[in-house]
Amino acid sequence: MYKSIFIFIISLLFISCNDETTQEDNEKIIAKNKQTFNLLSSIWDLKVPTLSPTAENEVSNWNEWQQFVIEINQKPKSNLTAFQLKTKNISSKIDSLQLNIPSQFNIPQVKSRIAALDTKIKMLDSFIHLTDVPQNKIKELIPEINEEMKSLVGQWEEIIIKKRIPKEVGEEYMIQALDTTRNASPELMMEKIRKQDSIDNQQFKDENKSPQRKKLLKTE
């Protein structure tokens, strides 16, 4: 009988200790979440760069982009859960963005910039949903996401400007040649120069060996 009472008392003490530990852990999590929420509220300044009137007109019918902008511009206010829901929604919107790109913007340069933006947003979404949110990582990601959006919009502006400039005869071929040169690696360019020099030297030697060239030299 005494043994049973002893076991019962020990069980109560064990349960009580567990409850205290659980409550303490919960309080720590709540305090950490509140700290993270306060941080996010102070640094959350995601914003889409202002487009030129022409560019704004070009994307006015791009529904996926308009939905993405609306989601970005709405800042969460209530708690950490609101920020978690926000990053999830933004991540979903950029997935839709990649699936329906207007034809004039559907080029590798634009796709690569959207992909880079998507990667940053997915990272932010993953970090915010962790139990122990890495606050320093989030501090770094917010401005990086803004830079990616700025780069994307800048690419659109460049496409629109080039489209509006009338091309003279042969100008398009010249632009293609310049693009090829810019995209080539320095090593490849040097190798092409060396090969061309070798070809030119050989042609010079062959011309000097020709009977006509020898005859001309004797005459001189």
Rank of each mutant, 00 (worst) to 15 (best):
I128A: 00
W65P: 01
I161C: 03
Q104C: 04
S52H: 13
D179V: 05
S52E: 10
F68P: 01
E148T: 10
S96L: 15
P76E: 06
L117E: 00
Q66D: 04
F83H: 05
P102F: 07
D179G: 07
R164G: 01
T181H: 06
L178D: 07
W65A: 03
L141A: 04
N89T: 14
I101V: 14
E187N: 11
I101D: 05
N183W: 02
R182V: 02
L130F: 06
K93A: 08
D118Q: 15
A82V: 05
E157D: 12
P53V: 10
A177C: 02
E187C: 02
T87H: 01
I159L: 14
E64N: 15
K137V: 01
F127S: 01
E158M: 09
Q196M: 13
E140C: 00
Q176N: 15
I72P: 00
I94L: 11
E168H: 08
S103H: 09
S126F: 09
P143R: 07
S198L: 09
M174K: 13
E191C: 02
I165E: 05
F105R: 03
L141F: 05
R182G: 01
E71Y: 02
E168Y: 03
Q66M: 11
L178N: 05
H129E: 12
F83N: 01
G154R: 07
I114E: 06
I159N: 06
D118R: 12
M190K: 15
P108K: 05
E157L: 09
E148S: 15
S96T: 07
P102G: 05
Q155V: 03
I94T: 09
T87N: 04
Q104K: 15
F127G: 00
T181Y: 13
L152R: 08
Q109P: 00
S52V: 08
D197W: 05
E158T: 13
N89Q: 14
I128G: 00
Q104E: 06
K120Y: 11
F127L: 07
K139P: 03
I90H: 00
Q67S: 11
E56A: 12
L117W: 03
S78N: 11
V133R: 00
A116Q: 09
N106I: 02
Y173W: 05
Q155S: 10
A82M: 05
E158W: 07
E171Q: 13
T131C: 01
L80A: 04
W156M: 15
L117Y: 01
H129W: 03
T119K: 12
F68I: 04
S52P: 03
V69M: 06
S198Y: 06
R182K: 15
L178I: 07
L117M: 12
I107C: 04
I142R: 04
K195I: 09
L80V: 06
K77S: 14
I114G: 02
V59A: 10
A82W: 05
N100A: 09
N100I: 09
E144I: 03
E148L: 02
I142P: 01
I72N: 00
